[in-house]
Amino acid sequence: MSTVAVLVESRDGSVTQPTFEALTLARTLGTPVAVWIGAAPAPAEAARLGIHGAEEVRVVDAGDAARLPAAAAAALGAATADADVVLVISTFVNKEIVTRLALATGAGVVVDASDAEMVDGHVETLQTVFAATWNVRTRIATDKAIVGIRPNTTQASPGETPGAATLVEVAADLPETRELVTGVEPVPAPDGVPLAEAPVVVSGGRGTNGDYTLVRELAELLGGAVGASRDATDEGWISHEHMVGQTGTTVTPALYVACGISGAVHHRGGMQASGTIVAVNIDPDAPIFEIADFGVVGDLGDVIPQAIARIKEVRGS
């Protein structure tokens, strides 16, 4: 069986949900091992990785240097020398890391994949492109394959024979880097589920006029995260981390609700692959209606409160 290495993402020491999704996918490709870059994880976190199928947790403590893609790539490379497949979550930073790793190893890379499978000994991936209007299947022709997988594309589940993962320390030779990180200003973690991982996203655009009360209320009711259009973040109505779209966060929740968002192609590119799309917009000609499973032409100030009341009423009865 081939070894499939999964780069672990963690937030405040806890493994993120997309990591468990990647481990679940890794089990279909071979024998998963987890790679943890940083000081050794807490035993409970290592155990959760084991439950999701990791046979080993390989720990590479590269210190602060790991913020630089070249150093992180060297750390990941040291822990994945024997791996036939390296899986990472498709984030901007990981794309940089795997580009360096691919140059060092000769591996072929696909990022932003929504699925991966073994076909005749080669990894094949699925992606959506052109603002999610096309499906593309790509074969990685090299023996070693690197795949960047999008969050929310595999349903995470525990392994069939959940075992305790063994911790293995790996030493890495870090390269000299020219770049120096001189400042790190942490962004506070979002309340609730991060946008990219949320099963439900409720977004507000210019049509909110800057008032996110209703959008937040609906998001909370549905157990989702709050998103926004670029115009809304540019206005300073909500922070940049909430922006959905081609240059913001790409989301693929089971449900996407667009409130007062016109549906510009840049925005659609970041949400069009969502499961169910719902839109509320006062303009019947808004392009968002072209891709919405259910649309309401109306003022969000009327429609959203009524929807909230109705859901509460049905839940209460």
């Binding site: 719902v278 019947p284 259910f294 649309g295 309401v296 032409v297 009524q306 859901i311």
Partner: peptide, 18 residues
């Protein structure tokens, strides 16, 4: 795909769909 125009019931219709 369904698009309804709100004439006072749009929010309820949205809730029912969900």
């Amino acid at each position: 795909r369904t698009v309804v125009t709100d004439t006072g019931e749009g929010g309820a219709a949205l809730a029912d769909f969900l």
